[in-house]
């Protein structure tokens, strides 16, 4: 095994081009477990810890440009107003020690269906900026996940930034685990209201081979909110519509039975989380609307 220590982004890209099998390591919260438990023995380990861009973020007018290695703790502490869903998701990652090291770039690189960031990225809307010596490209996060622990990156590519839409409305994230802390998701759900565009987006984790959006549920809810005049009135959705939304979210799942939970339970739990997060986000939207009108 060889240990590579690029000091700049260009050095990192060059190294990855030269050693396509090199495993990038940032927080180490996935890679080191694999090594410690003898599950992987890469030819090269490439430490991205010294590449400054990866640890920085920039809040733009419409998006946040998040460096791939920005640890979850920073997202919770510094970016909650702009990225509320991702901040909530970040708060459910592992433990404080893990959140101090783990990052969204790592979550994407591992592409585990159980990664906590994925549902929040899907719901908010995000693009992954990948780069190689051949050039840079932006991949919509929906297209980034290609299979269980597989992603759209080419062998010579590295994740530089994640461009995440700034929240224009309430966002929520819920995750089911069989412990009250430090637990890998049995399944997870994220919901973002986008009042500016009068749409909603969802993200489901750990209930299919890849993280995914419940598109039929999104479409149903977008139409239901529009047709009922809810965005303007702020009136809550009728319970039957909320139930239907939950059913459609559950139906979007394609889960398996594994040591963490059964497929049937995952479907059920996604439905419950969908219904609850819809209630919370809508309540929050109404509250914001009221205070905006009063002001």
């Amino acid at each position: 095994m060889e240990f590579l220590r690029p000091r700049t982004w260009q050095e990192a890209l060059a190294a990855k081009a030269e050693h396509p099998s090199a495993v990038p390591i940032a927080g180490g919260t996935d890679v080191m477990v694999e090594i410690n438990f003898d599950h992987c023995r890469p030819t090269h380990l490439m430490d991205l810890g010294r590449v400054p861009e990866l640890h920085e973020w920039e809040v733009g007018s419409a998006t946040v440009r998040l460096g791939a290695s920005v640890p979850y703790t920073k997202i919770i502490e510094r970016l909650a107003p702009e990225l509320p869903g991702l901040a909530l998701a970040s708060h459910t990652v592992g433990s404080p020690q893990i959140r101090n090291r783990g990052s969204v770039g790592g979550n994407l690189g591992a592409a585990s269906p159980a990664g906590d960031a994925h549902p929040a990225l899907l719901a908010a809307g995000a693009e992954v900026e990948a780069e190689s010596v051949r050039g840079a490209r932006r991949i919509p996060v929906e297209d980034f996940y290609t299979g269980v622990k597989r992603n759209a990156l080419a062998d010579d590519e590295l994740i530089k930034y994640i461009h995440i839409a700034r929240a224009d409305g309430p966002q929520q994230f819920s995750k089911v685990g069989t412990r009250n802390a430090m637990v890998i998701a049995v399944c997870a759900f994220s919901l973002a209201l986008h009042p500016a565009r009068r749409t909603v987006r969802t993200g489901i984790g750990s209930a299919a081979p890849t993280p995914l959006r419940a598109r039929a549920a999104e479409d149903f809810l977008t139409v239901a909110l529009e047709e009922g005049g809810h965005w303007d009135s702020g009136r809550p959705l009728p319970p039957s519509a909320a139930r239907r939304f939950a059913e459609l979210c559950a139906a979007a799942c394609d889960p398996i039975d594994d040591v963490r939970g059964s497929a049937a339970y995952r479907r059920r739990a996604v439905g419950v989380m969908a219904r609850r997060t819809l209630g919370w986000t809508w309540e929050s939207y109404r509250g914001e609307e009221r205070s905006t009108r009063c002001a």
Binding site: L88, H91, S174, K175, N180, A181, R276
Partner: peptide
């Protein structure tokens, strides 16, 4: 609450 940090309920259920 049940679920703890995973943010699954605010008392519902």
């Amino acid at each position: 609450l049940p679920g703890g940090l995973s943010n699954t309920t605010r008392g519902e259920g």
